[in-house]
């Protein structure tokens, strides 16, 4: 167990380091000058040069990276050029909204997709299966922009059920319902599809026939054997999607005025705010790796054949 965790944490650190290198290199490769962006249009050459020195951009790339890495190891993510404050503060201001939407969305997706996918798989060819397949097909083919607009028009403009904008913390759920639906419907559709096909595959296995031969009831077979084995790919997919959600969703944040991490990252990239972009990518990569670690642990507990070591 200890070895497993040590190994995974090393992997996590490796991932974060690789992301930090990629973020650093990609930002420098992108056209545009961070010093020019930090100043008004009419800044003189001297002002631009002074800003370059202030941002440390006058140093060789390798020196810049080593300084950045050293700060990172000390827990200093740098200072945002755009916001003129520590990157960690900027990220921590934005992260709660993204986490709140992710949590509500995840709960909603779990409640809908797992039962629907499993029941559809068990009742292959039945009306529920037909509905589940249609739901998955529609869900995966509908545009996020369209869904956002539809939700706004339906739930806010037409029926006044939900507020059209804003965010007021995790526990004021009415602000999170529309963003969560918009963020989760595609994921839900994918998981229904995965759950259904997993269940159909498992139910055609020999050990299921064997369980029936031993006189077990259909309910017992489905719950005790089929469900456990079919859920593993669903959990893996869920983990990947949740991790992706933690990086934010620009369209959804923009439409519902959610102060999340996605729109902040876009702003940071388009303004060539190197410290903030790099820090955000490193933080989201770390969250991605942690979620995947949790998924692996959950999978190992569900299926004992997947030993932690």
């Amino acid at each position: 167990m200890v070895k497993f965790f040590a190994k995974r944490i090393l992997c996590l650190l490796l991932v974060v380091w690789i992301v930090s290198v990629l973020a650093f290199v990609m930002m420098r490769l992108a056209p545009g000058d961070a010093a020019v962006m930090a100043l008004p249009d009419y800044a003189s050459e001297a002002q631009i040069a002074a800003m370059r020195v202030k941002l440390g951009l006058d140093k060789p790339y390798i020196t810049q990276y080593l300084i950045y890495l050293g700060d990172l190891l000390r827990g200093d993510l740098g200072t945002s050029v755009l916001y003129e404050k520590p990157c960690l503060d900027v990220i921590m201001e934005r992260l709660p909204a993204t986490l709140s939407v992710t949590i509500v969305c995840s709960i909603m997706v779990l409640i809908i997709s797992i039962p629907l996918g499993i029941i559809a798989g068990v009742n292959k060819g039945g009306p529920i299966d037909f509905f589940a397949v249609l739901f998955a097909l529609l869900g995966q083919s509908m545009s996020v922009v369209w869904i956002c607009v539809l939700l706004l028009l339906l739930c806010s403009v037409k029926h006044n059920w939900l507020p059209s904008m804003g965010y007021n913390g995790l526990f004021d759920v009415k602000y999170l319902i529309m963003p969560a639906i918009a963020m989760g419907y595609k994921m839900c559709a994918g998981m229904v599809r995965m759950g259904r096909s997993g269940m159909i595959d498992v139910l055609s296995e020999d050990y299921i026939t064997c369980a029936y031969a031993r006189g077990m009831s259909r309910f017992e077979v489905n719950c005790k054997y089929a469900f456990k084995n079919s859920i593993i790919p669903v959990i893996t997919l869920f983990g990947m999607d949740v991790a992706a959600m933690l990086a934010g969703a620009v369209i959804i944040e923009t439409t519902f005025t959610i102060p999340g991490i996605g729109s902040m990252l876009v702003k940071a990239v388009s303004n060539r705010d190197y410290p903030l972009t790099q820090s955000t990518l490193v933080v989201t990569a770390a969250m991605f790796a942690v979620v995947n670690l949790v998924v692996d642990i959950v999978n190992a507990f569900i299926d004992r054949r997947m030993k932690l070591n």
Binding site: L150, L153, L154, S156, V157, K158, H159, N160, W161, L162, P163, S164, M165, G166, N168, D172, K174
Partner: peptide, 15 residues
């Protein structure tokens, strides 16, 4: 149904 309406109570905008 998405034609727009002015009826009904607002859900809020409470912050």
């Amino acid at each position: 149904a998405c034609g727009g309406s002015t009826s009904g109570e607002s859900a809020g905008g409470t912050v």
